[in-house]
């Protein structure tokens, strides 16, 4: 059984009652299922969840994130990953297993303020999530511009099977590295393309909840820039 209409809900609001499972961002109160967050209710296949419209990023295993190096000790760096937890990047991830705190200069590799594309290795919440920068598409980011959006709007930016982001990239001749944590790095050889790509991303951030978003973005991309 599918298909109660998606509704805008706020914390405490009753979504439905009856034999449903309370899933993400909902709780069961008596026979009612109640939202715990501002978002869109989604009832189908006997379960109820709320797609959030606000809130921070909670690290999940295997997520690609953009991080900003904040500090380092003799064994690891910490990176601001736009979350309630900082990412821990072990020195051995960069220097290999024979890393020596006396011989290797950590700041020569990554200094405060450097941006990295990283993957979450382990986010079990009992300690700060472990991240890695070894792997395809990962590592220090040397060019482009950092853009911040709400982490909840990342799926909208990507679009169905990547349609939205591909449209932006191809029509502005730019590359966008998307962190699931809402941090993006946009780069392009063409300064106007870069500007346009950033404007398109800002439009999605503002208008993520409207139905004809793809048309709006398309229209914006096709308009002549001054």
């Amino acid at each position: 059984m599918s298909g109660e209409k998606k509704r805008h809900v706020i914390p405490g609001e009753v979504i439905t009652s009856g034999p449903y499972r309370a899933e993400q961002n909902t709780i069961q109160v008596g026979d009612k299922i109640v939202s715990t967050i501002v978002g869109l209710s989604d009832v189908h296949d006997g379960s109820v969840r709320v797609i959030p419209l606000t809130g921070g990023y909670i690290p999940k295993d295997d997520d690609l994130v953009i991080g900003k190096i904040a500090s380092h000790s003799s064994l690891s760096w910490t990176a601001d990953i736009n979350s309630c937890y900082v990412g821990m990047l072990p020195a051995s991830d960069v220097f290999g297993r024979d890393y020596s705190s006396s011989a290797d200069d950590m700041t020569a590799k990554l200094a405060k303020g450097d941006l990295i594309a990283a993957r979450i290795v382990n986010a079990d919440m009992t300690r700060d999530p472990l991240i890695t920068i070894s792997g395809r598409e990962l590592g220090k980011i040397d060019s482009g511009e950092l853009v911040k959006i709400s982490p909840n709007k990342v799926p909208r930016l990507i679009g169905k099977r990547g349609s939205m982001i591909q449209m932006i990239e191809s029509s502005t001749n730019s590359q966008v590295t998307i962190g699931q944590n809402g941090l993006l790095v946009v780069s392009s050889e063409d300064p106007n393309g870069l500007l346009k790509a950033i404007q398109a991303i800002e439009l999605i951030e503002e208008q993520a909840h409207v139905a004809n978003l793809t048309d709006q973005v398309n229209e914006m991309l096709e308009s002549k820039s001054e």
């Binding site: 900003k68 601001d80 200094a111 303020g113 950092l146």
Partner: peptide
């Protein structure tokens, strides 16, 4: 406040 390196270069 830590300003990211790309912004600083820019």
């Amino acid at each position: 406040l830590i300003i990211d390196q790309l912004k600083k270069n820019q």
